[in-house]
Design a protein around this nucleic acid. Structure first.
Lengths: 188, 188
DNA sequence: TAGGAATAATGAAGTCCTTCAATATGAAAG
DNA sequence: CTTTCATATTGAAGGACTTCATTATTCCTA
């Protein structure tokens, strides 16, 4: 029992809160009460809307975590993407980077500018196509990425705690199915 | 066989392309070849990495579609979010909007400024807390949201084509599980 | 070889969002 | 009643992207 007026045990958590209430349905699955209530009047079947909303929020969380974590190492999400690609695939023309990372060429130029300024990447001419410029990890760049990717992976594993491999495969499949459908929509 | 040098039937699709190859594994599930190849040397079990990557891309696609579709109606994603919330929940203090939409108060002020300038929303004083300001849909705002939400929903249904209700419930659950895990991480 | 396509770089402008700091007002609790 | 807290607003600054237009190379091919 609470002593008089001590703010009722409300210790004010990190920042959970207001309408961010996760509950569990009769099948043991998480859902958001407020979301469901809000969507219910719109459709007899809210499963699609709820799933897509959850996906949006999850994507957002992922993005936030990535940014926040990268910031600790003086890297933005985009710069990390470039570094990681280069470390996995070796030298690459900027254009190819833009395609792989699904970014504007203009943006890749900027990212590589920045990384070059930081000494993590250099531009090297492409011998086979002299229009082309390849981004290449410097020693410092390789050291940087090597020093962090492992921890990054562990963070990712934290995020999927409670999911089986089956779950993960299914999640992957559904997300990619959505990506496929989205592409049709994007192609008008 | 091809006739001489007619660019090999490559008609250049809308913009599919380069490394954006979706393939189907032995279980009939989609995966990205290049992604898997890239991740394989890092870990004996790439399922988590692949799933999270897929999720990121799906989230990105969703975001792009939303932006693009909103632009047709002169609305950004954020402004649509505000309008939609208001239409579902009625008047709301700006602070509550910020919480629900998971945005900075500064940003909500800006969005409401913009929507007010466009005549879709007005600010009304809150009778019970005179510090508070409530955003309220104007007639024009209600008309605008009413004229588009239905089509928006149909778009969403396109995106989940090929998914069963079970799939959707599972997808929702996994995404929210991830959100829950992410919150722990975000709370350091 | 001449003309058109591809590869980058660059600068200007603009969007959406964030953080931080300052201010004005009203609510709440001692 | 006075101090503290909550609610909005505002301005400055900046990050990460986008689009668009322009330029310089280099490649490819008719």
């Amino acid at each position: 029992m609470k002593s008089f007026n001590m703010k009722d045990t409300e210790v004010k958590f990190p920042e959970p809160g207001k309408g961010w209430d996760l509950e569990t349905d009769e099948d043991g699955r998480l859902f958001m009460r407020r979301m469901r209530d809000m969507l219910a009047p719109l459709s007899t079947d809210t499963s699609a809307l709820e799933a897509l909303s959850a996906l949006r929020i999850a994507g957002r969380s992922l993005h936030l975590l990535q940014e926040r974590w990268g910031a600790k190492h003086d890297l933005s999400e985009g710069r990390m993407g470039v570094l990681f690609r280069l470390s996995r695939c070796g030298d690459m023309p900027l254009g190819e980077l833009a395609d792989d990372l699904d970014m504007t060429p203009r943006n890749v130029t900027g990212l590589v500018d920045h990384l070059e300024k930081d000494g993590l990447v250099t531009r090297v001419p492409d011998r086979e196509d002299r229009r082309s410029v390849r981004a290449s990890l410097t020693e410092a760049g390789r050291a940087r990425i090597n020093s962090i990717w492992k921890v990054g992976m562990e963070h990712q594993l934290e995020l999927v705690k409670g999911m089986t491999k089956e779950d993960l495969a299914h999640l992957r499949h559904l997300c990619l199915l959505l990506v496929e459908n989205a592409r049709k929509e994007l192609g008008k």
